[in-house]
Amino acid sequence: MITPNHVLDAKGLACPMPVVKTKKMMKDVEPGLVLEIQATDKGSTADLQAWAKSTGHEYLGTETEGGVLRHFLRKGGADAASETVVIPEISLEDFKEKVENGEHMTVLDVRELEEYQEGHIDGAIHIPLGEVEQRSGELKKDDLIYVICHSGRRSELAAQTMSKQGFKQLINVVPGMRDWTGKTVK
């Protein structure tokens, strides 16, 4: 399960209210944090996906629980336009080769806990994107760090954050665990 930072109760509301309420609530959410929207409007799944796409947020998924739809959205980066640095990327194939050659490397997995628990690369350090800013001290700023997530988007954001904190050698693995065919551990 994804751990939300904020929860919006939009149960019992008809279109367009779930989207309107989400829009209002999202204003107070910090970039990178997760908003859970609880709704009973069956159209809200498609609506919130489209809404997230057009407003620059990330749709993480929907869980259904006894007629209640729980949608998870991650707020898009507010200062994405300002001060972005170019994070070098490595393709999943090249990265896989390095892993399989047993190269000494630091791998940082920034997905949510549940995603990580479903399967990750052996030895990967886990810090979900929302906690990267506070917990990056667990890593060394001079180390070569490969940052990975599901599709390459969250790892990019995480690397941006860490780059501003003074990490010198960050490499974003693209796309990410979504297409990973190598070994994983649980």
Partner: peptide, 11 residues
């Protein structure tokens, strides 16, 4: 009003 509020909510 539904289209208008939905559009406004989508910036």
């Amino acid at each position: 009003y539904n289209i208008a509020t939905a559009a406004a909510a989508s910036d």
